[in-house]
Structures are given as C-alpha cells and as structure tokens.
C-alpha cells in the first residue's frame, strides 16, 4: 500500500456516495429534501471535477500517493485498529473494566513494553485512572 495510486479512487468513492445520497434525497419531499439534494448534487459535480482533473488533466492515473511512514507502518495501524474494534465490540459483552484491562495489557505487550511486571503494573493503574475520572468524577454509567 506504500504507493497506491488512489487519489482518483477516492474521487470515485465520493462520486458514488454523492449519487447514492442524491437518490436518497430525491425520495424526500420538497423542503426537507431540497438542501440535501442540492449538496449531494454539488458533491457529485466536485467529485467528478476531481476525477477529471486527476485522470485527464494530470496525465493518466497520477495522483497523491498513500503517505506511508515507513515499512510496517500500515500493518501497525491495521492491527491497532483491528484490535481496538475487537475491544469496543467486547465492552458490551464483557465488563468495561475487564475488557479495558485486557486491551491495555495486550496493546502494551504488542507495542513492545517490557518487562511483564511493568505491564501488570501500568495496565490496571490506567484502567483505574479512567474509571475514577469518568465513573466517579463525571458520573458516567458503564453498566
């Protein structure tokens, strides 16, 4: 993914999104539907302009590339995101405290924190800190 030619692809996605939203807005009555229709149409025109600029005027499929920070960077982001999604998905099933504690411990381990006792010290302390701030001080209900 280091140098994916994707500027035009984003424009294409935006064009598809605007077409879909325009169609949805067409089903709305005049009044509440007027503004979304106008904006979706404008978005479509602008996306088309972007597409044309990239494909036709700038010589083929040249464009802004995926700015990767280095080898392995994209993979790191993917597993951080993936693991965070698993964590969010587990909050409703397991308790917040347990899922967050596990999230901290596994992430710290995967990001290279050593030795193990340090993780066992920091992970519960971090959960406790968040719990005190949000549950005790801000009265956020985690149940």
């Amino acid at each position: 993914m280091a140098r994916a030619r994707a500027d035009w692809a984003v424009a294409l996605v935006m064009l598809a999104a605007s077409a879909f939203l325009f169609q949805e807005a067409l089903a709305m009555p005049d009044g509440p539907g007027t503004f979304p229709r106008a904006v979706a149409l404008l978005m479509g025109v602008l996306s088309l302009g972007l597409l044309v600029r990239n494909v036709a005027l700038e010589g083929g499929l040249r464009g802004i590339y995926w700015h990767s920070a280095g080898p392995g960077a994209t993979a790191t982001v993917l597993w951080v995101v993936g693991f965070t999604m698993v964590y969010v998905g587990s909050i409703g099933r397991v308790s917040y405290v347990l899922s967050t504690g596990l999230y901290f411990a596994v992430m710290m381990w995967l990001l290279g924190l050593r030795p193990r006792w340090l993780i066992l010290l920091i992970a519960p302390s971090s959960v406790l800190l968040l719990w005190v701030v949000f549950v005790r001080m801000l009265n956020v209900s985690l149940s």
Partner: peptide, 26 residues
C-alpha cells in the same frame, strides 16, 4: 508509545461513550 497509545485510544473510546452512554457513539 507502548503506554501512551493504548491509553489515548481507550480515553477516546470512553470519551465518546460518556455523552450519551451509548456504544453506538463509540
């Protein structure tokens, strides 16, 4: 980074949840 990154992300998660107490917001 190994300490900061999970802490900041977990903070973002509970921060998003806090307003409406809804996982949908997260």
């Amino acid at each position: 980074k190994a300490v900061l990154l999970p802490f900041i992300f977990a903070f973002a998660v509970i921060g998003s949840y806090a307003g409406g107490s809804s996982l949908f917001d997260v």
